[in-house]
Design a protein around this nucleic acid. Structure first.
Length: 569
RNA sequence: GCCCAAGUAGCUCAGCCUGGAUAGAGCGUCUCCCUCCUAAGGAGAAAGUCGAAGGUUCAAAUCCUUCCUUGGGCGCCA
């Protein structure tokens, strides 16, 4: 359609005696914010100098040269320095709705042949096993899952991977506190979710170690003993990790996350030495007098140590190893790390080193850097226990959803539980995804949890309304409208935007584009059904088809966000 | 000190990549609308020197420079 508009403009300009390149017309042609100004608009300012006419005159001239609008157009008008093109929405509706009916849950996807299927790996949320998941992890998971779905939707094979950071001094801190103050308690005895149980000792460590210096010493001794393979320490480590991981699994499941591949830092943290030593032989890394190995990455990135003077690995060493392993194991097209923006420097260095080593080119790797979630009091701090816990948050929001549901209808316990969970997760996921991932965000517990307006439940509600309308109509759908109201036209236009939105979010790995689209689509639908009753109207057949099309597309959008739809609310 | 990001309505955020028509939402505040397909809805009002100053341009929230403010990062930690 856009091409058609460009063609019309080009032709009319040639008639008017001006030669403007197609690309230039394409560059200036825009989609007006206000639908009343058409579906495409062409501003004429840039032609004024060349043609020695005012933009307004040029617009009128172009309009005149086009003559009668071709059949795809309802109208072509000038408005000051703009030429506005109005697409015939009846024809658009007919084509669009039959296409959606045909493609269903595939509508909006970029078509790829199965043989061109490429594999990417998305790593998230890679938690530390010394404390339960918090709101930051939920943001990570919502983003990781959504971009995985967007990639799959567009024909890629996605490996969802997780790397458990299950060793190190922070783990030993929880262990030390448990050893000293745990008195043999267990999650079962306390009836506490097991990762929360572990996290309590991490907080306890930080409280007690302010006065109890022995605790600090104990944690360091434990780390040493762990690395020496001390049986007693290893068994405590195993026990506490199991608690942490079991707790995480429960949260993943509740949140709707499932991994295809799980890595453990404890199994790889000493790997990668050979790669580094190979790099020394190749001459890309250097050795210092004390025996440590490093690389000088220039003024901006500086020097980076890759092996300690005692020959042991540092964090980045294992990351190099793991990246190599993954590229080999899966023949990856892309490797995407969903990790907070505080690690931007780390990944810049990592990717540079991987490229130098020939393991993967920078263009294949991506640090999907997302911003921190802040509270009104400031940053969340696990060690001080001032975090919004993932499980607690879901529970709190679910309780609110239960209250709302009880106001509306009598439901079975099972139905109540399932619906309230779906609603609470949509509220949380949408809240986390609608904000541009790269930006830090504010979470205000008192205000952020809301089911009205620009929220997940609002969008779910529109979907449920569509279902309800469809279930009540006895007519069969027709793609051909007799006539279209303003709201119907706007809705058709919006639905037709979906493939572009998908493409945009796919190329930029940005779910927030889909989130805001889903919201504005739902908004238009609500306006539409308030203005135009479906059942019993003259246009019932067409409106049923429109509602069906809307429902499909909104459902597709919500799927890409990892949000479940509800037929009833 | 150096590097990166952000600063848009009381609050939370879109818009910035690719400069264009009166800067958009939601929450909150104030009005209306349930004999009408679910009011988790709809209609409307008030509310903005787009951090500041320069520059580029016919045109700047958008591009460039400087400055200010706020986060984050600069470990032989992970």
């Amino acid at each position: 359609m856009k091409d058609k508009v460009i063609e019309l403009i080009e032709k009319s300009l040639i008639e008017g005696g001006s030669k403007v390149k197609t690309e230039e017309i394409k560059k200036y042609l825009e989609i007006p914010k206000d639908i009343n100004l058409g579906d495409f608009a062409f501003p004429c300012f840039f032609l004024a100098k060349d043609l020695k006419q005012s933009p307004n005159e040029i617009a009128i001239e172009i309009r005149k040269n086009i003559g009668n609008p071709p059949e795809e157009f309802e109208d072509i008008q000038t408005s000051g320095p703009y030429v506005n093109f109005f697409i015939d929405k009846k024809a658009l509706a007919k084509n669009l709705l039959s296409q959606i009916k045909k493609e269903k849950e595939k509508f909006g996807a970029i078509l790829t042949k199965p043989k061109d299927k490429k594999t990417i790996l998305v790593e998230f949320p890679s938690p530390n096993t010394n404390k339960p998941l918090h709101l930051g992890h939920l943001r990570n998971m919502a983003i990781g899952e959504s971009i995985s779905r967007i990639a799959e939707f567009n024909g890629l094979k996605v490996i969802r991977a997780n790397l458990n950071n299950d060793r190190g001094i922070h783990i030993c801190q929880s262990m030390a506190a448990y050893e000293k103050y745990g008195e043999g308690k267990t999650p079962e005895k306390l009836k506490k979710k097991s990762d929360h149980f572990v996290g309590d000792y991490y907080v306890l460590f930080n409280e007690k170690s302010k006065k109890d210096k022995d605790l600090e010493v104990l944690s360091h001794r434990m780390l040493q003993k762990y690395e020496e393979g001390d049986k007693k320490v290893l068994s405590l480590w195993k026990k506490m990790n199991k608690w942490a991981l079991e707790g995480f699994d429960e949260t993943y499941k509740r949140f709707g996350i499932k991994h295809d591949k799980i890595y453990y830092e404890s199994k790889i943290f000493q790997k990668g030495k050979e790669i580094i030593l190979g790099g020394v032989k190749k001459g890309v890394f250097e050795k210092k007098e004390d025996g440590s190995i490093f690389i000088d990455l220039g003024k901006k990135l500086g020097e980076k140590i890759l092996l300690r003077s005692d020959g042991t690995s540092v964090y980045i060493t294992q990351d190099i190893y793991l990246a190599k392993l993954r590229f080999e194991e899966y023949n990856l097209e892309n490797l995407i790390y969903v990790v907070g923006n505080e690690q931007e420097y780390h990944f810049e260095v990592l990717f540079k080193i991987l490229e130098i080593l020939g393991i993967g080119s920078k263009s294949k790797m991506k640090h999907l850097s997302y911003g921190m979630v802040n509270l009104p009091e400031g940053r969340m701090k696990s060690r001080e226990g001032t975090v919004v816990d993932a499980d607690d948050l879901i529970k709190t929001v679910q309780d609110i959803a239960i209250k709302e549901l009880e106001k509306r209808a009598k439901l079975s316990k099972k139905e109540l539980r399932e619906r309230s969970l779906a609603i609470s997760l949509s509220a949380i996921k949408y809240l986390l995804l609608k904000i541009d991932a790269k930006k830090n965000m504010m979470f205000n517990p008192k205000e952020s949890i809301n089911f009205e307006g620009d929220t997940g439940p609002y969008i779910q509600y529109s979907y449920a309304r569509a279902s309800s309308i469809l279930s009540k109509s006895k007519k069969s759908p027709s793609f051909v409208p007799k006539k279209l109201g303003e709201k119907e036209k706007a809705l058709v236009r919006k639905i037709s935007d979906f493939p572009d939105i998908v493409e945009k979010s796919y190329h930029s790995l940005n779910p927030s584009i889909i989130a805001s689209y889903a919201y504005s689509l739902a908004q238009l639908f609500n306006e539409f059904y308030h203005e135009s009753p479906v059942i019993g109207s003259d246009s019932e057949e067409f409106r049923i088809a429109l509602v069906e099309g809307f429902k499909q597309v909104l459902g597709n959008a919500l799927f890409l966000l990892g949000i479940d739809v509800l037929e009833e609310m």
